[in-house]
Amino acid sequence: MNYFTKCSIINTSTYIWLHEDENIKLDTLAKRANLSSSHFRRLFHQYSGESLHTHLSRIRLEHAAVWLKYTSLPIIDIATIIGFSSREGFSRAFKAHFHYSPKFYRARVKEKTEIPMPTDRYGTLVPSIKIIKTSSVKVAFLRQFGDYFKVPFTWKRLGELAEKKSFLHSADCCIGVNYDDPEITKSKYLRYDACIPIPEEIDFSLDDNGLCIQTLPGGWFAEVSFEGTAFEEEALWNYLTLLWLPKSGYSLSDFRCLSIYPIKLIPSSWLDASKLLTKRYKATLRIPIQK
């Protein structure tokens, strides 16, 4: 799969993720990727490991699980959001995928989920949360599938490619995009984009290293500054989504979680990458919100 085709498939996958509530047609996706329908279907399966139909169904049901976990929306509203015309049809599909009815799943998840208060080196941390509006940003990125513990090594690889293309040191930050909740999505399907902002005029020619370009959409975000380890960052995400958000008057506008790091955090060696999970660092965390 050449550079342009791979990037088209990746960006089409992101489009599906952001528009799963719409009646997405194969022809529409193929047109976005500048491919024939049959060629797109084959390459999408090669890229994702799933047929388009299976992928769409899984994404919709996983998003339903996110709504059940992180909101108090009525089940019929969640069914409608992800494209089901009846609560009964949604419940059957959800139970077939997760082995629980939506009602039981919501009760079970809320009962099991522990939400420790985030901490810093001085003890319990009460985060200062700001509401901001951001503009879209063009980024070069690598997409990782699989366990999030592999993320530091994806950052190392991105740093090497950015160095070769001479845009690593022109950026003042890097951006991590988490698309999936590991308690909902199976490990092999977890997606993470390691991104570096680039000037609008930069473009790539053929490239067989997986480096692609996308535009991260702007919008309204809840933002909090952070200093700590990766495990403490996870605790802060849980606080934001499970404690702060339900009481804030806002709801999630989509399910991306953005972490903005100093550019110097990108590891330059395998040893540095292996230490990143326990290293202390500074970051800015953002969740997309709406009223």
Rank of each mutant, 00 (worst) to 15 (best):
Y122I: 03
D120L: 05
L161Q: 07
V137M: 10
Q144D: 02
R121K: 15
T54N: 09
P116H: 09
R58N: 06
S38W: 12
L125E: 03
H53I: 14
R143I: 02
K69I: 07
L26G: 03
V137N: 02
S72G: 09
Y70K: 06
V126N: 08
E163H: 11
V151A: 14
R121G: 03
Y100V: 07
V151N: 01
H97S: 09
V139N: 01
L26P: 01
I78V: 04
G159Y: 04
A162M: 07
T134D: 14
Y148I: 01
F145L: 08
S135L: 15
H55N: 09
L56W: 02
S128L: 15
M117F: 12
L158C: 00
A107I: 07
L68M: 13
W155E: 03
F153N: 01
K156G: 00
S57A: 12
E111T: 10
S37C: 15
A107Q: 10
T119K: 14
R42Q: 15
S128Q: 13
L168W: 03
F90Y: 01
K150E: 09
I82L: 03
P74A: 08
G83T: 03
K164L: 13
V137L: 06
S101H: 10
P127Y: 09
T113C: 08
L35T: 03
I115N: 04
S37A: 15
F94P: 00
E88R: 11
R108N: 08
I82Q: 00
T124M: 13
S85D: 09
I59K: 11
K150L: 15
T119V: 14
I24T: 02
L52C: 04
S86D: 04
I24H: 05
D27S: 15
R41H: 08
L29V: 03
R106T: 03
V137D: 04
K103L: 08
S36G: 14
I59P: 05
I129S: 02
A140R: 00
K165S: 08
H39Y: 15
R58I: 14
L68S: 00
K112R: 11
S101W: 11
G89D: 10
K110W: 10
A79Y: 00
V139S: 02
V66Q: 12
R41D: 12
K150Y: 13
S51C: 04
Y105N: 09
R42E: 15
R41T: 15
F149M: 11
R108S: 06
F84S: 02
V109T: 11
D120F: 12
S166T: 06
Y122Q: 14
F94L: 05
K69Y: 03
